Amino acid sequence: MLIFRDGQTVGTIGGGCAEAEVKRAALAVFSKGLPVTYTVDLTNAIAADEGMVCGGIMKVFLARVN
């Protein structure tokens, strides 16, 4: 998934709330410039309430590409 500075995206990592969290974290990478590994926990009751049916832990590496 590519996330541009203006918030546009190309591709997906699954959609929903998890993707929105990752997008927010990626936008912060633009200002800080440092790569991070962002973890999304899909194992709890909140994830189930939001319709995240796959469960598990998703780790996403975020880095700015010039």
Results as ranks from 00 to 15, higher is better:
29 V>L: 05
34 L>S: 10
7 G>W: 12
40 V>W: 00
21 E>Y: 03
30 F>N: 01
51 G>N: 06
11 G>L: 08
63 A>D: 08
52 M>R: 00
51 G>W: 02
50 E>V: 09
31 S>C: 12
18 A>P: 05
66 N>L: 06
54 C>M: 06
20 A>G: 11
54 C>E: 00
34 L>T: 15
44 N>I: 04
18 A>S: 07
10 V>Y: 05
45 A>E: 15
36 V>K: 00
15 G>H: 00
26 A>W: 00
57 I>A: 09
8 Q>I: 13
4 F>K: 10
31 S>V: 15
63 A>M: 07
33 G>F: 11
27 L>H: 06
51 G>A: 12
63 A>L: 05
64 R>N: 05
35 P>C: 11
44 N>H: 12
30 F>T: 05
33 G>S: 07
66 N>E: 13
12 T>F: 01
40 V>L: 01
59 K>F: 05
32 K>T: 15
62 L>V: 11
62 L>S: 01
21 E>I: 01
44 N>R: 12
31 S>E: 12
6 D>Q: 09
44 N>K: 10
1 M>N: 08
53 V>K: 04
44 N>T: 13
56 G>R: 07
15 G>T: 03
50 E>T: 01
64 R>Y: 11
19 E>C: 02
57 I>Q: 08
64 R>G: 07
33 G>I: 15
23 K>Q: 14
49 D>H: 09
27 L>P: 02
32 K>D: 10
48 A>F: 14
49 D>V: 12
59 K>E: 14
17 C>D: 08
12 T>I: 05
41 D>E: 08
4 F>T: 07
6 D>L: 06
10 V>I: 15
23 K>T: 13
43 T>D: 08
37 T>Q: 05
39 T>M: 00
44 N>D: 15
37 T>H: 03
18 A>C: 14
14 G>D: 06
34 L>V: 15
29 V>S: 01
17 C>W: 11
64 R>F: 12
60 V>I: 15
26 A>Y: 01
57 I>D: 06
6 D>C: 09
27 L>C: 08
37 T>P: 02
50 E>S: 06
5 R>W: 03
3 I>S: 03
57 I>G: 08
31 S>D: 12
42 L>C: 04
6 D>V: 07
49 D>S: 11
23 K>M: 06
47 A>F: 07
15 G>V: 14
9 T>D: 00
10 V>H: 06
60 V>Q: 04
61 F>W: 13
61 F>N: 06
16 G>W: 03
21 E>Q: 13
9 T>M: 02
45 A>T: 14
25 A>E: 08
